[in-house]
Every structure is written in structure tokens, then in C-alpha cells.
């Protein structure tokens, strides 16, 4: 099977994800315009940063008037989950030359991971796996950048767009990601504790309450998971 064919299969298997990405790109672009970013800045963030969730959060933090340091810290924490993806794909991508690893790392989003992981698990690197991966990454990248651009143009030309409450799309997206992940007690506890701390500390300067909330949630999740492991080990022994 040829490289080009695999590249094409990658693009084809990305279609379902593209249907999900385009509305967010549109909304991101519109919100970025409303937050006061120029067309080039809104587009530049999609081109260079390329991470939907953190871009949404950065925009809402900018709207709330947060400082750059807080936004960068938040970007770091929100993106930490990509370490998991990087670790999961390491056995396949780790052996490729640098000129492959750099662009594939740049394109490693939630959606890219979801599509390529299925292929890697089924067939590994057989039949030009990296070309399939490249097809997925490029198709998803272009759909994100393209829809961001259209959204930013809409944001600048449609009057009163700010009054619609488009930012709810971000909340709905995050709910759609979090709720299905609440499959066990530690995950549920992490969500509850993080929410409670975030509400209690929302008035802290520079949105530092978000950091406190995230760290509290992670700590409680890890603590409960370890307690469960100890208890089940105790029963087994």
C-alpha cells in the first residue's frame, strides 16, 4: 500500500472529527474577535498554538482581564493531559526520525490522538503508519485553522454577537468531555472538589483560584485512588 493512499485514509477517517471541530473553530474565532484580538492574532493563535480547549480558556481569561502569566500557567495545566497522549503514542512515534516527530508532536490534539490511536492499536506502524498519522494531523489542523478564520471574520462583521452568549458552547464542550469521564469515585471526587474550590476562590486575584481548584481536585483524586488500591490489596492479602 502506498504512502499517499495511507495519507488519504488518514484524511478520510478524520471526517467525523472535522464535523465536531468546525463549530468550535467558528465559535473560537468569533469569541477571539469579541475579546479584542485582531484577525491576525485570532488566526495566529490557531496556527501557532493549535489547542482548542486552551485557546477557549485563554480567550475567556482575556475577556475577564487576567494577566499573561496566569493565562500561561493555565495553558500549562490544561495541556498537561497531552503528556498522556505523548506517552501512549511514544512506542510508535518514538522510533521515527526527528523530521517526523516534530510535526507529529505539534499536531497532537485530543482529536488526532483519538483517530490515530485506533489505527496504531490495530496495525501498529505497518503500511506507512506515519503517513496515515500525517493525513489525520493535517486534515484536522486545516479544519481548525480554516474554521477559526471564518469565525473571526464573522465575529468582526456580525453586530451584537457578544450579546448571544456564545461562550456557553465552551461550557457545553467541557461538560461533554468531563461527565463521561466520571466513571469512578476518585474521578467524581476530583470533579466535586475542584468545582467547590473554584467557586470558593473565584474572587482571588489573577484567577489563581483556578490553579488552586485544579491542584485540589488532582490531589483528592490521587489520594482516593491510592486509598482504594491499599484497601483492595489489604483484602487480597
Amino acid at each position: 500500500m502506498s504512502r499517499l493512499q495511507q495519507f488519504g485514509y488518514g484524511c478520510r477517517d478524520s471526517l467525523a472529527m472535522i464535523v465536531g471541530i468546525v463549530p468550535f473553530g467558528l465559535i473560537y474565532g468569533a469569541l477571539a474577535s469579541l475579546a479584542g484580538l485582531t484577525l491576525w492574532q485570532a488566526l495566529g493563535m490557531s496556527l501557532l498554538v493549535y489547542v482548542g480547549s486552551a485557546q477557549f480558556i485563554a480567550i475567556s481569561l482575556l475577556t475577564l482581564g487576567s494577566g499573561a502569566l496566569v493565562i500561561l500557567l493555565t495553558t500549562f495545566v490544561v495541556n498537561l493531559r497531552h503528556v498522556l497522549y505523548s506517552a501512549a503514542l511514544q512506542p510508535y512515534v518514538g522510533g521515527l526520525p526527528q523530521r517526523w516527530r516534530l510535526p507529529l508532536a505539534f499536531g497532537l490534539t485530543d482529536e488526532t490522538f483519538a483517530v490515530v490511536q485506533r489505527r496504531y492499536l490495530a496495525r501498529g506502524m505497518a503500511d506507512y503508519g506515519q503517513w496515515y498519522h500525517a493525513g489525520v494531523a493535517l486534515a484536522l489542523y486545516l479544519s481548525w485553522v480554516g474554521s477559526s478564520l471564518v469565525g473571526a471574520l464573522l465575529g468582526q462583521s456580525v453586530p451584537n454577537l457578544a450579546g448571544w452568549g456564545l461562550d456557553f458552547a465552551m461550557l457545553a464542550t467541557f461538560i461533554g468531555i468531563v461527565v463521561p469521564a466520571l466513571r469512578n469515585q476518585p474521578q467524581i471526587a476530583a470533579a466535586l472538589v475542584a468545582s467547590a474550590v473554584a467557586l470558593l476562590c473565584h474572587a482571588w486575584p489573577y484567577k489563581l483560584g483556578l490553579m488552586a481548584a485544579a491542584l485540589s481536585g488532582i490531589a483528592i483524586g490521587v489520594w482516593l485512588e491510592q486509598r482504594q488500591t491499599r484497601m483492595s490489596n489489604g483484602e487480597a492479602g
Binding site: 461550557l171 474521578q187 475542584a194 483560584g209 481548584a213 491542584l215 481536585g217 488532582i218 483524586g221
Partner: peptide, 10 residues
């Protein structure tokens, strides 16, 4: 627990 904690806190 990172995604759950961060996204819930938002």
C-alpha cells in the same frame, strides 16, 4: 485527574 479537575473548575 488533570482534565477532570481543570475543566470542572471552569
Amino acid at each position: 485527574y488533570v482534565p477532570t479537575a481543570v475543566l470542572s473548575a471552569i
